[in-house]
Simulated scan of single mutants.
Amino acid sequence: MKFIDSNHSQMLGQAMNAYALRQRITATNIANADTPGYKRHQVQFESELQKAQETNGVAGMKNVTGAIEETNENVLLEDEMIEMTDTQIRVQLVTRSLRHHFQMLRFGITGVNR
């Protein structure tokens, strides 16, 4: 069923996975803020998504996953809290997009718009 499991829905699913990973990594950064020698980790997703779009188009975007990388930066609690808030906003956006996608599918199948 290509219309249910479309490139769009698969890419949004990958985005949800990447944002869940980003939230875990941010929480780990916050938990280790006072650990001597600990360096901040981050999840790259949007830049990888953009690269995939430029090279393979929309079809390549569905295979992009978040990549964890260690930076040479120390953890700043304020920056991590901003990162957590930004990620939560992105999760809400992807959730709304998925909800809309499935509402349109339901409307197409049933003809009832709720």
Rank of each mutant, 00 (worst) to 15 (best):
L49Q: 01
G108Y: 01
L77S: 07
Q103R: 14
S97H: 05
R114K: 14
R99I: 09
Q50E: 09
M81K: 14
N32Y: 03
E54A: 14
M81P: 01
Q88M: 08
D5W: 03
S47K: 12
P36E: 04
V58Y: 09
E48A: 12
A18N: 03
E73A: 15
R40H: 07
G37S: 07
E54G: 12
L98T: 06
H8R: 09
F45K: 03
M84H: 02
R90L: 07
Q44Y: 01
Q53E: 06
G111A: 01
M84W: 01
R90K: 14
R22G: 04
I4Q: 00
S6R: 11
F3R: 13
D5L: 09
N72M: 11
D79I: 03
A31T: 08
A33M: 14
N32H: 05
D34T: 12
V64A: 00
N63E: 09
L98A: 01
T85C: 00
R96I: 00
E54Q: 15
L12K: 05
R96C: 00
T95D: 12
A52C: 03
R22P: 01
I30C: 05
A18P: 04
L98M: 15
T110E: 12
Q10R: 14
Q88H: 05
G60F: 03
R90M: 10
T71F: 10
A59R: 11
I68A: 03
Q53N: 10
R24E: 14
N29K: 11
E78P: 07
D5F: 12
N113Y: 05
D5T: 10
V75K: 10
Q103I: 02
Q92H: 06
Q92E: 12
G108F: 00
E48W: 00
T87E: 01
L93G: 03
Q23A: 10
Q50V: 09
D86Q: 11
D34I: 06
D34Y: 08
M104P: 02
Q53R: 12
L77V: 11
E69F: 15
R99V: 08
Q14Y: 06
K2V: 10
G111E: 04
Q42V: 08
E73L: 15
R22H: 03
Q44A: 09
F45V: 03
A18K: 02
V112M: 07
D79F: 10
T55P: 08
N74W: 03
R90G: 02
V91P: 00
M81Y: 12
T95N: 13
A27N: 11
L98W: 06
E46A: 11
E73F: 14
A52G: 04
D86A: 12
Q14G: 10
Q42R: 13
G13D: 06
N72V: 10
P36L: 07
N32C: 01
A67F: 07
S97K: 10
R114V: 14
